[in-house]
Design a protein around this nucleic acid. Structure first.
Lengths: 116, 116
DNA sequence: GTATCATATGAACAGATAAACATATGAGAG
DNA sequence: CTCTCATATGTTTATCTGTTCATATGATAC
Protein backbone atom coordinates (compact mmCIF):
# COMPACT_ATOMS: atom_id res chain seq x y z
CA UNK A 1 0.00 0.00 0.00
CA UNK A 2 2.58 2.57 0.98
CA UNK A 3 6.23 2.71 0.08
CA UNK A 4 8.46 1.60 2.90
CA UNK A 5 11.27 4.09 2.49
CA UNK A 6 10.77 6.09 5.63
CA UNK A 7 12.05 3.78 8.30
CA UNK A 8 12.36 6.11 11.21
CA UNK A 9 10.01 8.54 12.84
CA UNK A 10 10.91 12.17 12.43
CA UNK A 11 9.75 13.27 15.86
CA UNK A 12 10.34 11.73 19.24
CA UNK A 13 8.95 8.27 19.49
CA UNK A 14 7.21 8.98 22.77
CA UNK A 15 5.32 11.87 21.18
CA UNK A 16 4.13 9.58 18.44
CA UNK A 17 3.17 6.94 20.97
CA UNK A 18 1.22 9.51 22.93
CA UNK A 19 -0.62 10.54 19.79
CA UNK A 20 -1.51 6.95 19.01
CA UNK A 21 -2.61 6.44 22.59
CA UNK A 22 -4.85 9.46 22.67
CA UNK A 23 -6.50 8.79 19.32
CA UNK A 24 -10.13 7.71 19.69
CA UNK A 25 -11.08 4.36 18.26
CA UNK A 26 -11.30 4.00 14.52
CA UNK A 27 -15.07 3.67 14.70
CA UNK A 28 -15.54 6.86 16.67
CA UNK A 29 -13.49 8.79 14.15
CA UNK A 30 -15.54 7.33 11.36
CA UNK A 31 -18.78 8.31 13.05
CA UNK A 32 -17.46 11.78 13.64
CA UNK A 33 -16.64 12.19 9.96
CA UNK A 34 -20.11 10.93 9.14
CA UNK A 35 -21.63 13.55 11.41
CA UNK A 36 -19.69 16.39 9.80
CA UNK A 37 -20.50 15.03 6.37
CA UNK A 38 -24.15 15.71 7.11
CA UNK A 39 -23.40 19.34 7.88
CA UNK A 40 -21.32 19.50 4.75
CA UNK A 41 -24.11 20.30 2.33
CA UNK A 42 -25.57 23.75 1.85
CA UNK A 43 -29.13 22.56 1.42
CA UNK A 44 -28.98 20.70 4.71
CA UNK A 45 -27.28 23.62 6.45
CA UNK A 46 -30.01 25.90 5.22
CA UNK A 47 -32.70 23.56 6.44
CA UNK A 48 -31.11 23.33 9.86
CA UNK A 49 -30.69 27.07 10.05
CA UNK A 50 -34.32 27.59 9.14
CA UNK A 51 -35.29 25.26 11.96
CA UNK A 52 -33.22 27.26 14.47
CA UNK A 53 -36.18 29.53 15.08
CA UNK A 54 -39.29 27.55 14.52
CA UNK A 55 -40.71 24.22 13.55
CA UNK A 56 -41.66 24.25 9.90
CA UNK A 57 -43.46 21.98 7.50
CA UNK A 58 -41.81 20.58 4.39
CA UNK A 59 -43.71 22.95 2.17
CA UNK A 60 -42.56 26.00 4.12
CA UNK A 61 -38.96 24.91 4.05
CA UNK A 62 -39.04 24.33 0.33
CA UNK A 63 -40.44 27.79 -0.30
CA UNK A 64 -38.18 29.50 2.21
CA UNK A 65 -35.07 28.06 0.65
CA UNK A 66 -36.32 28.04 -2.90
CA UNK A 67 -35.55 24.37 -3.28
CA UNK A 68 -37.82 21.70 -4.71
CA UNK A 69 -40.08 19.80 -2.34
CA UNK A 70 -38.48 16.53 -3.38
CA UNK A 71 -34.99 17.72 -2.61
CA UNK A 72 -36.08 18.98 0.79
CA UNK A 73 -37.84 15.74 1.53
CA UNK A 74 -34.76 13.70 0.65
CA UNK A 75 -32.52 15.85 2.80
CA UNK A 76 -34.94 15.83 5.71
CA UNK A 77 -34.80 12.08 5.55
CA UNK A 78 -31.02 12.18 5.87
CA UNK A 79 -31.28 14.58 8.79
CA UNK A 80 -33.93 12.49 10.49
CA UNK A 81 -32.09 9.21 10.00
CA UNK A 82 -29.13 10.80 11.70
CA UNK A 83 -31.24 12.16 14.53
CA UNK A 84 -30.55 15.80 13.80
CA UNK A 85 -34.21 16.65 13.32
CA UNK A 86 -37.45 15.18 14.54
CA UNK A 87 -40.90 15.41 13.07
CA UNK A 88 -44.53 15.67 14.10
CA UNK A 89 -47.44 14.89 11.84
CA UNK A 90 -50.54 17.03 11.80
CA UNK A 91 -53.09 16.18 9.19
CA UNK A 92 -51.50 16.40 5.80
CA UNK A 93 -48.54 18.32 7.10
CA UNK A 94 -45.35 17.13 8.73
CA UNK A 95 -43.61 19.62 10.96
CA UNK A 96 -39.91 19.30 11.45
CA UNK A 97 -37.76 20.70 14.25
CA UNK A 98 -34.25 20.33 15.57
CA UNK A 99 -33.87 17.29 17.75
CA UNK A 100 -31.46 18.85 20.23
CA UNK A 101 -29.30 21.84 21.03
CA UNK A 102 -26.08 20.19 19.97
CA UNK A 103 -27.02 20.88 16.39
CA UNK A 104 -27.20 24.60 17.13
CA UNK A 105 -23.91 24.73 18.92
CA UNK A 106 -22.00 22.80 16.29
CA UNK A 107 -23.29 25.05 13.54
CA UNK A 108 -22.64 28.19 15.56
CA UNK A 109 -19.11 27.09 16.29
CA UNK A 110 -18.55 26.58 12.60
CA UNK A 111 -20.02 29.96 11.83
CA UNK A 112 -17.65 31.56 14.34
CA UNK A 113 -14.76 30.08 12.44
CA UNK A 114 -16.06 31.46 9.14
CA UNK A 115 -16.54 34.91 10.64
CA UNK A 116 -13.19 35.23 12.30
CA UNK B 1 -38.29 24.04 -10.78
CA UNK B 2 -40.77 23.20 -8.07
CA UNK B 3 -44.46 22.50 -8.45
CA UNK B 4 -46.61 25.47 -7.52
CA UNK B 5 -49.37 23.71 -5.67
CA UNK B 6 -48.65 24.96 -2.19
CA UNK B 7 -49.84 28.54 -2.31
CA UNK B 8 -49.96 29.38 1.35
CA UNK B 9 -47.53 29.03 4.20
CA UNK B 10 -48.45 26.52 6.82
CA UNK B 11 -47.10 28.49 9.76
CA UNK B 12 -47.60 32.11 10.67
CA UNK B 13 -46.25 34.43 8.07
CA UNK B 14 -44.39 36.51 10.59
CA UNK B 15 -42.54 33.44 11.82
CA UNK B 16 -41.47 32.69 8.29
CA UNK B 17 -40.43 36.29 7.75
CA UNK B 18 -38.40 36.20 10.92
CA UNK B 19 -36.69 33.02 9.76
CA UNK B 20 -35.87 34.59 6.41
CA UNK B 21 -34.62 37.70 8.15
CA UNK B 22 -32.34 35.83 10.50
CA UNK B 23 -30.88 33.55 7.86
CA UNK B 24 -27.27 34.40 7.09
CA UNK B 25 -26.45 35.31 3.51
CA UNK B 26 -26.40 32.58 0.92
CA UNK B 27 -22.63 32.82 0.59
CA UNK B 28 -22.01 32.42 4.31
CA UNK B 29 -24.13 29.30 4.39
CA UNK B 30 -22.27 27.93 1.43
CA UNK B 31 -18.91 28.58 3.10
CA UNK B 32 -20.15 26.96 6.27
CA UNK B 33 -21.13 23.84 4.38
CA UNK B 34 -17.71 23.85 2.71
CA UNK B 35 -16.05 24.01 6.11
CA UNK B 36 -17.98 21.05 7.45
CA UNK B 37 -17.35 19.14 4.25
CA UNK B 38 -13.66 19.26 5.06
CA UNK B 39 -14.30 17.65 8.44
CA UNK B 40 -16.51 15.11 6.75
CA UNK B 41 -13.80 12.65 5.77
CA UNK B 42 -12.29 10.15 8.14
CA UNK B 43 -8.77 10.48 6.78
CA UNK B 44 -8.83 14.22 7.34
CA UNK B 45 -10.40 13.85 10.77
CA UNK B 46 -7.65 11.43 11.71
CA UNK B 47 -4.97 13.80 10.49
CA UNK B 48 -6.45 16.67 12.47
CA UNK B 49 -6.79 14.52 15.57
CA UNK B 50 -3.17 13.44 15.27
CA UNK B 51 -2.15 17.08 15.11
CA UNK B 52 -4.06 17.86 18.30
CA UNK B 53 -1.05 16.89 20.34
CA UNK B 54 1.99 17.62 18.29
CA UNK B 55 3.29 18.89 15.01
CA UNK B 56 4.12 15.99 12.75
CA UNK B 57 5.79 15.48 9.41
CA UNK B 58 4.00 13.89 6.47
CA UNK B 59 5.86 10.65 6.88
CA UNK B 60 4.87 10.33 10.53
CA UNK B 61 1.24 10.99 9.79
CA UNK B 62 1.17 8.42 7.04
CA UNK B 63 2.65 5.78 9.32
CA UNK B 64 0.54 6.73 12.30
CA UNK B 65 -2.67 6.41 10.37
CA UNK B 66 -1.57 3.60 8.12
CA UNK B 67 -2.45 5.57 5.02
CA UNK B 68 -0.32 6.06 1.92
CA UNK B 69 1.95 9.10 1.73
CA UNK B 70 0.20 10.29 -1.40
CA UNK B 71 -3.20 10.21 0.24
CA UNK B 72 -1.92 12.11 3.26
CA UNK B 73 -0.25 14.68 1.05
CA UNK B 74 -3.40 15.25 -0.94
CA UNK B 75 -5.48 15.66 2.20
CA UNK B 76 -2.96 17.94 3.83
CA UNK B 77 -3.21 20.11 0.78
CA UNK B 78 -6.97 20.35 1.22
CA UNK B 79 -6.53 21.18 4.89
CA UNK B 80 -3.88 23.77 4.17
CA UNK B 81 -5.83 25.42 1.35
CA UNK B 82 -8.67 25.83 3.78
CA UNK B 83 -6.43 27.20 6.49
CA UNK B 84 -7.06 24.41 8.95
CA UNK B 85 -3.40 23.45 9.18
CA UNK B 86 -0.18 25.28 8.64
CA UNK B 87 3.24 23.95 7.76
CA UNK B 88 6.88 24.58 8.46
CA UNK B 89 9.70 23.25 6.31
CA UNK B 90 12.82 21.88 7.85
CA UNK B 91 15.28 20.35 5.44
CA UNK B 92 13.59 17.53 3.61
CA UNK B 93 10.75 17.39 6.06
CA UNK B 94 7.58 19.42 6.26
CA UNK B 95 5.97 19.65 9.67
CA UNK B 96 2.27 20.28 9.88
CA UNK B 97 0.28 21.65 12.80
CA UNK B 98 -3.20 22.97 13.46
CA UNK B 99 -3.56 26.56 12.41
CA UNK B 100 -5.83 27.58 15.28
CA UNK B 101 -7.89 26.44 18.23
CA UNK B 102 -11.18 26.66 16.41
CA UNK B 103 -10.35 23.39 14.74
CA UNK B 104 -10.04 21.70 18.10
CA UNK B 105 -13.25 23.08 19.45
CA UNK B 106 -15.30 22.21 16.39
CA UNK B 107 -14.07 18.64 16.45
CA UNK B 108 -14.57 18.33 20.19
CA UNK B 109 -18.09 19.64 19.92
CA UNK B 110 -18.81 17.03 17.26
CA UNK B 111 -17.30 14.34 19.42
CA UNK B 112 -19.52 15.38 22.32
CA UNK B 113 -22.52 14.87 20.11
CA UNK B 114 -21.33 11.40 19.13
CA UNK B 115 -20.72 10.44 22.74
CA UNK B 116 -23.99 11.64 24.16
C1' DG C 1 -66.28 6.51 -3.71
C1' DT C 2 -63.07 10.56 -6.35
C1' DA C 3 -60.19 14.69 -6.35
C1' DT C 4 -56.68 17.27 -4.37
C1' DC C 5 -52.89 18.38 -1.59
C1' DA C 6 -48.59 17.43 1.32
C1' DT C 7 -45.14 14.41 1.65
C1' DA C 8 -42.33 10.37 0.66
C1' DT C 9 -39.90 7.15 -2.21
C1' DG C 10 -37.48 4.89 -6.11
C1' DA C 11 -34.66 5.18 -10.14
C1' DA C 12 -31.59 7.48 -13.14
C1' DC C 13 -28.32 10.87 -14.21
C1' DA C 14 -24.61 14.27 -13.37
C1' DG C 15 -21.20 16.18 -10.69
C1' DA C 16 -17.99 15.71 -6.96
C1' DT C 17 -14.32 13.34 -4.61
C1' DA C 18 -10.83 10.30 -2.59
C1' DA C 19 -7.56 6.85 -3.60
C1' DA C 20 -4.06 4.73 -6.46
C1' DC C 21 -0.49 5.09 -9.62
C1' DA C 22 3.06 7.35 -11.99
C1' DT C 23 5.92 11.07 -11.97
C1' DA C 24 7.98 15.53 -10.58
C1' DT C 25 10.23 18.69 -7.36
C1' DG C 26 13.47 19.98 -4.09
C1' DA C 27 16.73 19.25 -0.39
C1' DG C 28 20.64 16.96 1.63
C1' DA C 29 24.63 13.64 1.25
C1' DG C 30 28.39 12.05 -1.11
C1' DC D 1 27.48 16.53 -10.45
C1' DT D 2 24.53 12.08 -8.98
C1' DC D 3 21.79 9.52 -5.72
C1' DT D 4 18.44 9.15 -2.30
C1' DC D 5 14.74 10.53 0.44
C1' DA D 6 10.53 13.38 1.75
C1' DT D 7 6.99 15.52 -0.24
C1' DA D 8 3.99 17.22 -3.90
C1' DT D 9 1.30 16.99 -8.09
C1' DG D 10 -1.30 15.32 -12.30
C1' DT D 11 -4.20 11.83 -14.11
C1' DT D 12 -7.24 8.18 -14.05
C1' DT D 13 -10.69 5.41 -11.94
C1' DA D 14 -14.23 3.90 -8.82
C1' DT D 15 -17.33 5.35 -5.61
C1' DC D 16 -20.42 8.40 -3.51
C1' DT D 17 -23.90 12.01 -3.34
C1' DG D 18 -27.51 15.39 -4.54
C1' DT D 19 -30.94 16.59 -7.70
C1' DT D 20 -34.58 15.67 -10.89
C1' DC D 21 -38.32 13.17 -12.67
C1' DA D 22 -41.94 10.01 -12.11
C1' DT D 23 -44.71 7.82 -9.02
C1' DA D 24 -46.63 6.28 -4.56
C1' DT D 25 -48.69 7.04 -0.05
C1' DG D 26 -51.74 8.99 3.06
C1' DA D 27 -54.81 12.47 4.62
C1' DT D 28 -58.63 15.73 3.98
C1' DA D 29 -62.63 17.52 1.44
C1' DC D 30 -66.40 16.70 -1.38
Amino acid sequence: MEHEKCEYLCVHEDTVKKVINDMPEEEKLYDLAELFKIFGDSTRIKILYALFEAELCVCDIAQLLNVSQTAVSHQLRVLKTNKLVKCRKEGKNVFYSLSDDHVCSIINQGMDHINE
